[in-house]
Design a protein around this nucleic acid. Structure first.
Length: 544
RNA sequence: GCCCUCGUAGCUCAGGGGAUAGAGCAACCGCCUCCUAAGCGGUUGGUCCCAGGUUCGAAUCCUGGCGAGGGCGCCA
């Protein structure tokens, strides 16, 4: 089905020859849609905008869709849909199992997100990556794309020499540790490393042993991974995100690819030796990318290149998304540029860094615990659950994370985000729960729900119906722009319109045909709210 | 020093060429014999950081400042 604005646009474009750039009306008195096409045409036609608008209005064939259009202000064309057309469009949303979200996607989209570090608890930064990545996964899947999540966990690197050495020094049974225990071990190893030169040397040796495949070392390393994964699983379960072990693709999985990546970089002439390191210079970047360090070890850029190459060659990605903090913008732009240059990233494959801002405390600085430590994910969720029941607390945290522009830092204010008034997750849940209650009562009282929306006499009903028809295009927009806050804004607007409808339009006490139609409208709104919240990764309880 | 991002109401944020710049919070005033008042309506509150430029039209695009944050060859 083609959407209403598309149909309207085509009719107008048949007259104007250019896209009328139809937009939702900025104010109710301007109808449902507005176009500035006459203002833009006025110049080329050399006639007053209002005159142009009048001609467009007279010539456009809109009678079966709209009330007679109005020319307003400096030359805007305001369109108001006919009630029967609006009712039909709302019915389509009601009867469509996807509530108007077009599912024809067809791309393979790899999304890199979450990426916690082994032997460390997840912190607020991982929270953002995980929540945003989860939302994008859900949205792109709903649009019919094949989404391949990749959890690029930090399971390799120099720190493991230190950790293994510390375990051996303490004679520790790793199997008895949990993730918090591993993190304490990490701290002890760090202190030990700084204070004891002999230990530091042994740790460096241990890195070599690990890389060369020493059995004992590998066995301990695997144990560290196992306890970390248990911790990650628990965190994902608590967060209610879709990530599973099948999505794990840590840094270590690319170890075997690194020599080949380097060889290809050298063969293509992209990489050169500079100051002892193998680097790639790319135009537009003030520093080269270090692929192999002077000491022969690989930098993290090498791993990122290998991962990107794998995603293109083996996972057959059409689009690759990196949900990583905005501070890494330079790094990823450089990785993409190098990958293009080296031929790992063909022109037709899109690579996009979905950068997000930092989580700030009420002081406007990076969120920290009272003693200045990093804020743990678990502590943060604990604090939220002190203020609200679990599904509501989670909704509060997730919605706060998704409802602002991603690139901006945002202030983490638990007391504000758990409020049920205002632009919060719980407010959306409340709107949904209210509808569920209403529909339950209707069923209990034996009121039939009309299979279609038949009556839209009240402005509040029309507003709701019009909003319903926009759901699909909003989801499409999020899939393109990768800006979840647009879906948040939409759902907030829908919830607000529902509250107004709820105040102004009695449902159960209306006469029969109005009641049946309103129940249909309510069902459609409930479905869109539930589906929209699900796309955000937020539960929609039926009672609150 | 160079590069990137951000700057909108007291606070938290939308809006990113188009009509009188919008929400929420806070403050104040109303509304429950009525489907969840966890709600709704109203009032107060703005030099859209500053200065130029482009345009019929700029919060929005361009240039230059100022302010805040982040990044800039061997950590990941």
């Amino acid at each position: 089905m083609s959407s209403l604005p598309q149909a309207l646009s085509r009719r107008i474009e048949a007259v104007t020859g250019i896209d009328p750039e139809l937009r939702p009306a900025t104010k109710p008195q301007f109808g449902h849609f507005q176009s500035n096409v006459a203002l833009r045409l006025a110049k080329t036609e050399g006639r007053p905008p209002r005159e142009v608008a009048q001609r467009v209005v007279e010539q456009a064939d809109l009678g079966d869709l709209c009330e007679p259009p109005e020319v307003a202000g400096p030359g805007f064309i305001n369109l108001r849909l006919r009630t029967d057309v609006l009712a039909r469009a709302a019915t389509e949303v009601l009867t469509d199992p996807a509530s108007g979200v077009p599912g024809g996607g067809g791309e393979t989209v790899v999304i890199d997100y979450s990426a916690p570090n082994v032997a460390k608890q997840m912190h607020v930064g991982h929270l953002r990556s995980t929540i945003i990545g989860d939302c994008l996964t859900r949205v792109l899947r709903a649009l019919g794309h094949t989404v391949v999540p990749q959890n690029h966990i930090g399971d390799w690197g120099r720190q493991f020499g230190m950790l293994v050495e510390q375990i051996l020094a303490e004679g520790l049974d790793v199997a008895g540790l949990d993730l918090a225990g591993a993190e304490e071990l990490y701290r002890r190893a760090n202190a030990h490393f700084a204070a004891d030169e002999a230990f530091a040397d042994a740790s460096r040796q241990r890195v070599v042993l690990l890389q060369s495949g020493d059995e004992q070392t590998l066995a301990i390393w695997r144990q560290l991974i196992d306890i970390s994964l248990a911790g990650f699983r628990a965190a994902y379960e608590r967060l209610g995100v879709l990530l599973t072990d099948a999505d794990l693709a840590g840094e270590s999985t690319y170890n075997d690819d690194l020599p080949a990546v380097v060889a290809e970089l050298e063969e293509s002439g992209a990489a050169v030796v500079d100051d002892g390191a193998l680097v790639v210079f790319v135009e537009g970047f003030n520093a080269p990318m270090i692929v192999r360090k002077r000491d022969g070890g690989f930098g993290y850029s090498a791993t990122d290149l290998a991962a990107l190459r794998h995603r293109v060659r083996d996972l057959h990605a059409d689009r690759i998304l990196y949900v990583v903090g905005a501070e890494q913008t330079f790094h990823f732009n450089q990785v993409f540029a190098v990958a293009r240059k080296a031929g790992f990233l063909p022109a037709e494959v899109r690579a996009e860094h979905v950068g997000y801002g930092m989580v700030l405390g009420s002081d406007g600085k990076r969120l920290r615990t009272r003693d200045g430590g990093t804020m743990k994910l678990a502590d943060l969720l604990d604090a939220a659950e002190e203020r609200a029941a679990r599904p509501i607390a989670l909704a509060a945290v997730k919605y706060a994370d998704l409802s602002n522009s991603l690139v901006k830092d945002y202030v983490f204010d638990l007391d504000r985000m758990v409020q049920t008034t205002g632009d919060t997750g719980p407010y959306l849940q409340y709107a949904h729960a209210r509808l569920c209650q209403l529909l339950r009562r209707a069923e209990a009282e034996g009121h039939p729900v009309s299979p279609s929306v038949t009556r839209l006499d009240e402005p509040a009903e029309q507003t709701l119906a019009l909003l319903l028809t926009r759901f699909g295009e909003v989801v499409v927009e999020v899939g393109t722009s990768l800006q979840p806050h647009r879906l948040c804004s939409y759902l907030y607007e829908l919830s607000g319109a529902l509250s107004v409808f709820y105040e102004q339009c009695p449902v159960l006490k209306s006469e029969e045909d109005v009641r049946a139609s309103r129940l249909a409208l309510c069902t459609a709104v409930r479905d869109v709210l539930a589906r929209g919240l699900d796309l955000l990764g937020i539960e929609a309880p039926e009672r609150m």
